[in-house]
Deep mutational scan, measured.
Amino acid sequence: ASVAVIAAGTQGNIFATSALRSMRFLQILRMVRMDRRGGTWKLLGSVVYAHSKELITAWYIGFLVLIFASFLVYLAEKDANSDFSSYADSLWWGTITLTTIGYGDKTPHTWLGRVLAAGFALLGISFFALPAGILGSGFALKVQEQHRQKHFEKRRMPAANLIQAAWRLYSTDMSRAYLTATWYYYDSILPSFRELALLFEHVQRARNGGLRPLEVRRAPVPDGAPSRYPPVATCHRPGSTSFCPGESSRMGIKDRIRMGSSQRRTGPSKQHLAPPTMPTSPSSEQVGEATSPTKVQKSWSFNDRTRFRASLRLKPRTSAEDAPSEEVAEEKSYQCELTVDDIMPAVKTVIRSIRILKFLVAKRKFKETLRPYDVKDVIEQYSAGHLDMLGRIKSLQTRVDQIVGRGPGDRKAREKGDKGPSDAEVVDEISMMGRVVKVEKQVQSIEHKLDLLLGFYSRCLRSGTSASLGAVQVPLFDPDITSDYHSPVDHEDISVSAQTLSISRSVSTNMD
């Protein structure tokens, strides 16, 4: 405001104040949320940038038409019409005319000016109207692209899951042992070998009828009888010197917790746990005396209480009078009846079946994303299906024409109403129809010849004498029936064969 007042002088105070007050009108834009329509302006900018070359070309040609039209109309009207006294007036008329506004304040009066105005109007309006069409088509394409992008975003994750499931299904095939990355992934998420051994031990116990592997080994086996189970490696608790092959000598807290839970599941009659010990102070733990958990001091820290809870689970003690015997301790020893080589084939089979199920689920979810969402998608899918159906029908028609023997030239002739090819031409065609016709002709010829021969033979049998045999009239074959199959017997006289037959029969009768 200060700059405006200084620039306008003393009389500019009122002007500056009114100008600043008129800017209050811009507050109405906040009512229509114009300040939060950044996406709309961004869309407009992207459309203009995408079609910038077309817009520049249309505007450039339109500007050239405007300059030439205004100049030529000015030359034609400057002497006869006072409205075109300057080139600026003519340029104003050209702008209003070519933009199809047409105020009518300035019009050419001479015939030359009117002809020039009409010609440049028809030429220039087309170029001035091009930017509107370019922007409209650009907006339509952009909206369609955003629509497809939205659908693509919805299909991206199911497609990625389907590709991942397909690759993992491919890589978990037993015949592709060189693909090891997927197996490394499952090695990292699978439970430890100790848990798998416990699982298979329970399965084997159920197969043995509820007997433990130790009891199965204690059962008497006759001499020479084959053992029911192959000899396997035996594993004891981590306190002993022997372990399962492939295990580490260090046992983690999870393994100890699972070991304690498995020992508690063996039965309360074979294992008696004394009350857990509780320390009397955060600094020292008295293991010899058993106290109640309700006497825990409230001033303990979080670490002390955590250690106390761990001691409740991981440090059970047995009383002296209830101490288990050596046999019970041997039964409680952890027996590992299986090795990694025995378990891994079954584990890989389970993983393979899981990968198949996940692949089928991913495939079903991806197919669900291909379903249409709204009416536009339904129409688009219907149009695509219609085009596909037309293509299939056209391909089927082409194959039928190839089989029947109607080529493209014959199809055009039928469409024009011309006469089709004759039967002889159809026979000569190298097509399925021509071959079928040729075979039918040959079969008819053979059938006719057989009928003639059978009739001749029956007449010979009825006559009974050589004289009557020679008097029999043998009809000749019709050459038209034989089609294109020409037998060497067709052109010979059958009477010669009949005479030869009669001579042979007379000779045979004389010999008798």
Rank of each mutant, 00 (worst) to 15 (best):
R168C: 00
S171C: 09
D173A: 01
Y184S: 09
P191Q: 08
F193S: 11
A206P: 09
L211P: 06
R212Q: 13
P213R: 07
D223A: 09
S227P: 10
R228G: 08
P230L: 08
P230Q: 07
V232D: 10
A233D: 09
T234S: 12
S242T: 14
C244Y: 08
E247V: 15
G252S: 12
I253L: 14
I257F: 01
S269A: 14
K270R: 09
T277K: 08
P279T: 07
T280A: 00
V287G: 04
S292I: 15
S292N: 11
K295M: 04
V296E: 15
V296L: 08
Q297E: 12
N303I: 07
N303K: 09
D304G: 15
D304V: 13
R305G: 10
A310G: 09
R313K: 14
K315R: 04
P316A: 01
R317S: 15
T318N: 03
D322Y: 15
D322H: 09
A323V: 10
S333R: 09
E337D: 08
E337G: 06
D342H: 08
A346T: 10
V347A: 10
I351L: 13
I351N: 09
R352P: 02
I356N: 10
L357I: 06
R364M: 02
K365I: 12
D374G: 01
D374H: 01
D377G: 12
Q381R: 06
A384G: 12
D388N: 11
S395R: 08
Q397P: 02
V404A: 06
G405S: 02
G407W: 08
R414Q: 06
E415D: 04
G417V: 14
D418E: 06
K419T: 13
S422P: 13
A424E: 07
V426E: 06
D428G: 12
M433V: 14
M433R: 08
V436A: 06
V437G: 08
V439G: 08
V443E: 15
I446T: 00
D451N: 07
S458W: 14
C460Y: 11
L461R: 14
G464A: 10
S466L: 11
L469V: 12
V474E: 04
F477L: 07
H486N: 03
S487N: 10
S487R: 06
H491R: 07
H491Q: 12
E492G: 06
S495P: 08
V496D: 08
A498E: 04
A498P: 06
L501P: 12
S502I: 06
I503V: 05
N510S: 05
